[in-house]
Design a protein around this nucleic acid. Structure first.
Lengths: 146, 146
DNA sequence: CAAAATTCTATTGCGCACAATTTAATTGTG
DNA sequence: CACAATTAAATTGTGCGCAATAGAATTTTG
């Protein structure tokens, strides 16, 4: 019995996920530079373009991020006039995020991004979908334990 | 023709990778807390346990990280007496990273980690391997373009 | 061999990402 | 209704992650 030799990072699934994530960020960067958005900011807009006027909490649940990440990110977008923050009248603990006209307008300028990314992956739609579902299931299992 | 409607983040492969990466970090955290290591620090040790005395550049190429990330990370490990940094005598531009006795000793204490992670993924070895290879190929394609 | 180009590391600045804490508002309970 | 418990955001502090830059050492080349 040799016990448990340490794996090489090249053998580890976690490192494949970690480094593929960085590769995506690098790939997005030149495409999002035109919009002056970071990748996490782009994700926030994708959510808000789909459904406006979400609370910080709802946004965080959608993105798996907490207020410590989202609050300063949103404030930077607010400072640029792309979103507005306002306390909910019904429940003043909550802050609702609304797109401004400029924030909505950004959507047209982002239209070319998804196709470029799809091409960059080199995967067919079915291949990308299969991989996405595997990762979704993996995330759920990792989050379920402990 | 409806043109190119924006995808929902739930439909996007990049977001699946991004959020699965965060899930891995969260999963590792309680296991690495016992060693007082972050996930990126753990990756550095996995590389150094396998092959000691690497340069900053070699470490960066292995991890797909640059000196702006690695230098401060290594300095924190050095401050804790887990590694040493020294200029290469042959080429003084290079800095070589060596494990200290404490840094080497950490390996025994980390031995339970890989198995716990393998279990946490809920994947068979073959399943994990297949997914890893897909992500590896994806990373290479994303890094190849542009 | 001297000047130019390249290589390697470190530094600075910015933006996540998250744990821990704080503050304020709301809900639950006696 | 008072008061404890809970919830939502914001804040603080630490550690990545990377672009841009700087500075020193090495290599290239004219």
């Amino acid at each position: 019995m040799t016990g448990n030799p340490m794996p090489t990072i090249d053998q580890m699934l976690c490192f494949a996920v970690y480094s593929a994530g960085h590769a995506f960020t690098r790939f997005y960067k030149p495409r999002l530079d035109a919009l002056d958005l970071t990748y996490p900011q782009y994700l926030v807009f994708l959510v808000l373009w789909e459904r406006d006027n979400l609370t910080v909490k709802a946004l965080g649940e959608r993105l798996f991020l907490d207020s410590g990440t989202i609050t300063p990110l949103i404030k930077r977008l607010e400072a640029r006039g792309l979103v507005q923050r306002q306390r909910d009248d019904e429940d003043e603990r909550q802050v609702r995020i609304r797109l401004t006209a400029d924030g909505r307008a950004l959507k047209q300028r982002a239209e070319a991004v998804p196709l470029a990314v799809a091409k960059g992956t080199g995967l067919s739609q079915a291949g990308a979908e299969a991989l996405r579902l595997e990762l979704l299931a993996l995330r759920e299992r990792l989050d379920r334990v402990d």
